[in-house]
């Protein structure tokens, strides 16, 4: 129950409205430090909306999002989008992969290290003169290489990212987010469209991140085998509200989850929805 004792991210009474539509309604949960936390729920439950609020792509209509990174505390709902990644160190991947397709794999990983490299190049002025920057870039390339080794793409480092196979692109996007040194890595459906072997490689990568780095992981996933295998903590959303919160074993036994999400036959659905709603 690390998420209760040592929460890295606290979401409190989060509300997100689009006009009259309430996508997220009074949602509260914690993400534990060094945990892998999964957010699951049927389509349209508001999972990606929660992600967009955490990573600054939406400004929440209400509520608080607090990240406690070591000594500092950040109120994400008040920060501009890029500062959430740069200062609060929360990075993300996207449901539809967003790599810099025309740039090489290595360049993608260097762009992720933009802020430290920019400082090392003296806001480009020193870099233009060739002072101090080359060493910083070598270090950045070494870090990129470390992650390329982890995702088995070292030999493809100089290939345009758009030319990679789909599964490789997914892993590259995760490696790119990791190159920004996040304390919280948000993954939006990382296993979508992967075959079983690629799914297994992804699981290993995520477990490796948990074992070897201080980064905590928050992920949205539909693939239950992945969720149940790697998660320490599962949060279930339905219609923008939290319906269950606990360990994978607890969530699996939860009746409301079973009714809303895991095993309801199509013809039973209206009856169950009516029951849950009441």
């Amino acid at each position: 129950m690390r998420w209760l004792n040592d929460p890295l991210l606290s979401v409190e009474h989060l509300v997100m409205r689009f006009g009259g539509l309430v996508a997220v309604d009074d949602l509260s949960f914690n993400v534990g430090r060094s945990d892998i936390t999964a957010v699951i729920g049927p389509n349209g439950a508001g999972k990606t909306t929660v992600f967009n609020c955490i990573t600054g792509f939406y400004r929440p209509s209400g509520g608080a999002l607090t990240v406690r990174g070591g000594a500092q505390t950040f109120a994400l709902e008040k920060m501009p989008g890029h500062a959430i990644a740069a200062k609060a160190k929360v990075t993300r991947t996207f449901q539809n992969i967003r790599l810099f397709a025309g740039m090489t794999v290595l360049e993608n990983l260097l762009v992720a290290q933009h802020n430290p490299l920019m400082r090392a190049s003296g806001m480009s002025f020193l870099g233009l003169l060739g002072i101090a920057y080359p060493a910083a870039e070598r270090a950045a390339i070494d870090k990129a290489r470390h992650w390329l080794d982890k995702i088995n793409l070292t030999s493809r480092a100089d290939v345009a990212a758009g030319e990679l196979a789909y599964g490789d692109q997914r892993r590259l996007e995760i490696a790119r987010a990791m190159c920004a040194d996040p304390i919280l890595l948000c993954l939006d459906e990382p296993a979508a469209g992967l075959n079983p072997r690629e799914s297994a490689a992804l699981t290993d990568l995520l477990l490796g991140i948990r074992e070897t780095t201080p980064t905590s992981i928050l992920l949205i996933e539909h693939d239950m085998s992945v969720v149940m295998e790697i998660s320490d903590h599962v949060i279930v959303l339905d219609y923008g509200r939290k319906i269950a919160d606990g360990t994978p074993a607890q969530v699996r036994r939860d009746e409301r989850v079973i009714a809303a999400y895991l095993g309801v036959e199509d013809q039973e659905l209206p009856a169950v929805v009516a029951e849950v709603g009441s």
């Binding site: 990573t55 600054g56 792509f57 989008g81 890029h82 500062a83 959430i84 990644a85 740069a86 200062k87 990075t91 993300r92 996207f94 967003r98 790599l99 810099f100 397709a101 025309g102 740039m103 360049e107 260097l110 762009v111 992720a112 933009h114 802020n115 920019m118 790119r176 987010a177 920004a180």
Partner: peptide
């Protein structure tokens, strides 16, 4: 590189800080 990244995908740039 940030300019080129911006040309490729502005949203991903923001997500990387």
């Amino acid at each position: 590189r940030a300019w080129e990244a911006l040309r490729e995908d502005e949203i991903a740039c923001r997500a990387l800080g």
